[in-house]
Design a protein around this nucleic acid. Structure first.
Lengths: 333, 333
DNA sequence: TTGTAGGCGTTATCAG
DNA sequence: CTGATAACGCCTACAA
């Protein structure tokens, strides 16, 4: 079966024109049941499989969605990917995966490749995308949906989570309980989320007429961040640590443990994303739930919509998030 | 810029034939430098971007590699994906991601979609692929490389890790140290790896003329597996627990901790894969290092090779693995 | 070194 | 409801 049957051969075998075959292939109603079955029989017999390459050229569509993920594989990203792939596939779109791995101009390279591949739409996680790249996409009429950052603009939609709001609520509660020495531990990646969190913290402090000065940036590697936090905790009394990701919070957890600080008594610790490992930490980590899978799934849905309709659907979806208290914190939010 | 320039317009602008344009596009040497620059200039001016769809049809190649990952996102899979994507992209192949999410026949559906899409090659992780699907691929001359399972066959290669061997070595060492009550905690997924591990264990026991009866299968969910292990540990004295994945081992770790069992003294615990969270566990988890990224990268390299050469390259690469002792175990291997 | 012409396998637009 | 026939944009012998 080296040679694949073409639509012509099916037509010949069924004794109809190739146009008719094409019609039954595309479920066009204007075909009599009789000829349709005849054609289907021929398809079966010839083991005919349509050639997507040819269809793509004829329709000028590739039925592909590009998914661009940041270079670092945070644990929650795999869930997002699952969401995108599931929904994409279910709607007959293949998803092509790109990662922004090499240098700074990589996004531009990727965008070029996307345009050349005639990929129909692109979904990008946590916008490391620059305005230039976005302009290039829209110039080529390629719709874009961004996961993480709410954006406006035609041919552009987004699905995100409001880190700022939930953070504000959590911090406010802590301030009300007289937890004032609050530290926000941030890594190096994912600036966007960090900015939002920071903004939420500051807002709560502002409302309390106090000043936030607890920003602590650490290395991304576990061993380094652990050491830096350990060092900080050794010299400073802290009421609450909030880590930009669960893994950062766990580093803090371990550092505190090793300093014999009583967690949830002398010190509350909270992470973000409700990673599966937050439950495994000892004590189990309090965290902010983020609907990882849904971020991906909804993004893909938006994209499919944009791709299907002529009218451009601009949409900025904000998904729900909430605080999950476990054993690493005392205050109920 | 709604309308994209075609090769014809470039040709007209450069006052050459489209064949010549095609040649410079493909770096064909048979073009004089002079006309080449002329053509390049026209390309720049027209902002011409070749249409991959058309090229694909003409060459009957899609420059795409399919990557099929199992339904469950184990933490290590994202590293494997990174490896595949990096190497694929670097060699001008897009990687299309599929996941075996829906029901049992999903693999077959995916395979059909792959054939229809004229995807050049497929890489699959930890072979949940059935022989029927494999046959279908080779019937369509689509090369396959499997990550996890060594396989033979034309148009087929693999890259894997020898779980059996490393397991054998570890267990042997433990038996030599008179650790006889050994429990292997297995989940439900990834039967292939589990089988290999089990085989390694049995081999070591066989050599010791003893009988292994410590197989314990638990739920995949953390909370369930924790409970089941807790219950087991409560009623049984155990010397060594080996978990099929780090997360399973961590569940055991926590259960033992809660039963006041002294880890690395009364009980050794070991996981697999050297996940980043194994370092974060308290105590830090001993584990088997598996080159996750390289599994993906090498697989993509093999695939690219197969795709490039006419001669079929069959290769079964086995990557190195080793034991990493941390604080959850006492015995040095 | 360059140009001509046919082909890749579909879809889509007409007539009939 | 069905059948010709022209795109779709590029590649590639074959000629010149």
């Amino acid at each position: 079966m080296n040679k694949k049957a073409t639509i012509y051969e099916v037509a010949k075998k069924a004794k109809v024109s190739l146009a008719t075959v094409s019609r039954v292939l595309n479920n066009n109603k204007n075909v009599s049941i009789k000829t349709a079955t005849k054609v289907k029989k021929a398809i079966k017999e010839l083991n005919y499989i349509p050639n997507a390459l040819a269809r793509n050229l004829a329709t000028n569509k590739g039925y592909q969605i590009a998914l661009i993920v940041p270079e670092v594989s945070f644990s929650f990203i795999s869930r997002v990917i699952s969401g995108v792939v599931d929904v994409g596939l279910k709607n007959n779109y293949n998803v092509v995966l790109y990662s922004t791995n090499y240098g700074k101009d990589s996004v531009n390279k990727i965008i070029n490749s996307i345009i050349e591949s005639r990929i129909d739409g692109v979904i990008i996680i946590n916008s490391e995308i620059n305005t230039q790249a976005m302009a290039k996409l829209s110039k080529n009429d390629i719709p874009l949906t961004i996961i993480g950052t709410p954006v406006k603009g035609k041919i552009r939609s987004s699905v995100s989570v409001n880190y700022e709001k939930i953070t504000y609520e959590v911090i406010r509660k802590y301030l009300q309980n007289n937890y004032y020495k609050i530290i926000f531990i941030d890594g190096e990646y994912n600036r966007f989320v960090a900015t939002q969190i920071l903004s939420g913290i500051k807002q709560a402090f502002l409302e309390d007429n106090t000043y936030f000065d607890g920003y602590l940036q650490v290395d991304e590697s576990y061993s380094q961040s652990y050491l830096q936090i350990y060092d900080y905790l050794k010299h400073n009394k802290v009421d609450l640590i909030i880590g930009a990701r669960d893994s950062l919070a766990i580093a803090a957890l371990n550092a505190a443990l090793d300093l014999n600080i009583v967690i949830a008594e002398d010190l509350d610790i909270i992470g973000y994303n409700n990673t599966k490992y937050s439950r495994m930490a000892r004590p189990a980590l309090s965290t902010i739930e983020v609907p990882k899978y849904d971020l991906g799934a909804k993004a893909a849905m938006q994209m499919v919509k944009m791709l299907r309709k002529e009218e451009i659907v601009v949409q900025n979806e904000v998904l729900d998030t909430y605080f999950v208290r476990r054993n690493s914190s005392k205050i109920e939010v």
